[in-house]
Every structure is written in C-alpha cells, then in structure tokens.
Design a protein around this nucleic acid. Structure first.
Lengths: 235, 235
DNA sequence: CGTGATATTCAGAAAATCTTAAGATTTTAA
DNA sequence: TTAAAATCTTAAGATTTTCTGAATATCACG
C-alpha cells in the first residue's frame, strides 16, 4: 500500500451501486478500480497492486466468493463483501467465508468509509512500519472529531452527538471552507437509500447540532448558513 | 523462530477453512504457509524453517498423522491438529502420535489464536532466551484478563466469566478506546462461520458481563454503549 | 413589504437497545 | 452412561433514544 492513497477494487453488477461506492471512496482520495462483472475484475487483480476489494456477493458471472478465494490464494489484502439484506442466510454464510468484513445493502456512505478505513488500518498495522497518519480524526480550532470513538470534543468539553448529528458534522468538517448544500449533505449522510424532497430533516439536525455547540443561528460561530446555497464551516 | 514473526504451516483440504485460519493468523502477524494437500505440505516442511504446524487430520492424500510423524522425526516444532467433532477416536490417536494440541471444528477464532500462541510460548520458552512480549495478558485500571487461564480480575476480585463472556470482554479490551460494533464483535468472537442477522445474542452477553462487573446500563463504568454504533471501553 | 428560504418547535413514528425468561445445547459430575 | 448444572441462544415485549414531518415563526433579499 502506498503512503499516498490505497488502491481499491469495486465489483458490483448493479452499476448504480458500484458508481455510488466509487464516488464516496474517490471523495476520500482513494484510487478506484471499478468493474461491473467478475471476469473483468479478475484481470485487474492480477495486474494491479491492490490494497482492498469490495465485492458484491451475487454477480452474474464469477461470484464474489470465487473472487475472494483467488485473492486469498495469490494475494494478501482485505476483502469486504456486499450483501443484500434479503439474500438467504445459507448463501451468505458460504459466500462470505474468508472475507474480512461484510456490509449489507443498503448501507450508509459513512459506514462504508469507516469500514474501509478500519480494514486498511488493521491491515497496514501489521504490514508497514509507517506510523499511519490518522485519517479517522479531524481536529482544528478547538473541535475534535474521532471516527473511532465517535466522540466529539469542543473546547475540551465533550459533546454527545447522535449518530446522524455526528455524521453531519463530520461531513461539514471534512469539507471545511466549502459550502455544502442540504442536498449534498443529505446524500453524504443518508446515501441514496431514501429520497425525500424536504431538506427539512437536515435542517432539524443542524439545529440540534448548533444547540449542542451553543451556536446560535443569528451569529453562528461554527456552522454558518450561506443563503440560497447551504452550510459551511470556516477554514 | 525469528523475533519478528513465527512461520506457521496450515494444511487443510477444505480451502475455506484453511483460508479462514490464514486470515486470523495473518492478522496476528504470523507468516503463513498454506496448503490444500498433504503432499505439497511435506515439501514445505523440508524447505522452510517452520515454528508451528496446524494440520487437518483428514486429508485426501497424506493424512495429518503422517505429516505429524515426519515433523517429529526430523524437526522439532509444535503441531496442532484440526479434527471434526465426529472424529473422536482419531483425536486420541493423533495426540498419542505426537501432536501437541488439537482443536475441533468448528472453532472460534480467538480460541485458535490462543492455542497457537500458547504452543509458541511453551516452545520458545525452552528454546530461546528471548523474553517474548506477552500478548496473552491485558491489564489496565483494575482489570486483568489472562488468555491462558481465561481468568478475569476486576479490582482484586475474580470474576468468573463464561467463555463467550471472556471473549467479548477480551475483544473490547484489546480495542479499548475504540467503538466496536455488535457485528464486529460477533465476527471476532464467533468467526465468519456462524452468521446471524440479530445482534441480540451479543447484547445478552453484554448484559451478563455488565451484571458481573456491577456495571449498570444507565451509568456503565466499563462497557459503554455508543448509540447507533456499538460498545466501547474507555482508554 | 412580500416572497421564498431558513428556523424553531414538538409530537408521533421509527429504530436501537435493554430486559427477561424459556428452551436448547454443552459441559461437568456422578 | 446418565443426570445435573452451566451456558448459550432465541424471542418477545419494554424502554430509551433518535428521527422525521408538519405547522408555525422568522429572516434575508429584492
């Protein structure tokens, strides 16, 4: 694994899913190798130096399990399986054998990213002497967000955030200095899982966040409203 | 045995099992030599400096006993046998033929790792002067967990934990400071072999643990619930 | 001002966790 | 080997926390 960015293989015949995963992970600065079929993926496994694979269990040609086996045979990097919730348990048991982790669809983007990072961390821990830079931690001017512990500290004081609140703040912070629209926020946090026209839900959570941060909407110190565009945290 | 990592031989014709064992042990930083047949393994025994072997008793070509005998004849490192539950008689025979330990399938990852470490420890104790760092003991702020004896002490008092309880606490402690999701806990403790959608089982064990630790769910001193994410033990 | 965008509030819905207990399984002891 | 004890799993309902959507209020900009 290079120090700069991990190479991640994505295989899913549902193009929408694969594309989505790609977007999320590219956003995290990973190099993506994406395929809609198992056959193409196998080729990639041989020719690229990969660091992690995300495989759909059910593929039309070569199934995820076989790919996983091939990876195990000749290579050594973590494999995360994607399974639909409805798929039969027996099937999954067999198919996920040997995978390092699995995620059931539909999943939340942040969860996916967290899992990917966890695997890369766990793996590099034993395969590199580099004191990995911590990407699961965001810290600046009195605000600390820790993906591992899901903790949030604001000026030495611990804020107890709900999962959604944490996610929203995380997205805002990792895009610090840039305005993030309600829609974008919604997509980042909830994924395409739900579609709703009302961005009101986001608003309510922003409200709660500001409350917990003692941030008044009139003079928000942290989460600023940019009229007609979205929300932003100052750099 | 090198100071850095032990070389471990795995032989099992059930590829899924061999792969699984490989994953678990690689995770523990061992070098793995894996084979799906006895013949290939014999070759490896001659050419590599091995520190431990994990052998399936039932192999299609050369059986585990024979391999074990060959190891005993020319080499000197511990052998752990893998046996299916039904193979009662073989178990005994295998042991008398010189295996140092045996594990019945299906096994739990933590148990496998513990046994491997125990054997390596036992062996190196007499064959090296290096005071190997002991990873089989976790101790911090009043809590002591001993993988060898499966004992747990909390503030000088011994807690009698069931195997599952011990495993869960062990995983939580070794990931202290990080939130571990129910799913992850489940994987670590039960392995990929068993699969269940309900994390309720984990929950019940957590409950029992908290009970034994006099940890109330409202104000847990030790095992904290991180809503929507998992459980965690403070650093 | 008027209009559309953002805020606030709050109650019901949904989701996650906790508790309990009964039955299944495994281990231990006799 | 069998009986007893210990442990594990599962399920159902209770509880707690979190999320959502509607109704209303407020604000910024023209």
């Amino acid at each position: 694994m290079t120090l700069l960015a991990a190479n991640i293989l994505i295989v899913d015949d549902e193009q929408a899913i694969a594309d989505l995963v790609e977007v999320y992970l590219k956003n995290e600065n990973y190099n993506i190798f994406k395929f809609y079929s198992g056959k193409d993926a196998l080729n990639c496994i041989e020719n690229e130096k990969l660091d992690l694979a995300i495989l759909d269990v059910m593929l039309p040609d070569v199934d995820g399990f076989s790919i996983c086996q091939q990876i195990r045979e000749k290579h050594n990097f973590p494999v995360i399986m994607l399974t639909a919730k409805e798929e039969e348990i027996d099937k999954i048991t067999g198919l996920t054998l040997g995978a390092d982790d699995y995620i059931t669809k539909p999943f939340r983007p942040l969860e996916l990213i967290a899992r990917v990072k966890a695997q890369l961390r766990r793996f590099t821990k034993y395969n590199s002497s580099e004191p990995k830079q911590e990407e699961h931690l965001i810290a600046f001017s009195g605000l600390v967000l820790d993906m591992d512990t899901h903790e949030c500290m604001l000026n030495e004081k611990k804020l107890s955030l709900t999962p959604t609140e944490f996610s929203i703040l995380w997205v805002l912070c990792s895009n610090r200095g840039r305005v993030v629209s309600s829609e974008e926020l919604f997509h980042e946090v909830w994924g395409d899982k739900y579609f709703t026209n009302s961005n009101n839900t986001v608003m309510v959570h922003i409200r709660h966040l500001r409350e917990k941060m003692h941030d008044r909407a009139e003079h928000p110190k942290y989460i600023k409203t940019v009229w007609g565009v979205g929300y932003k945290i100052e750099k």
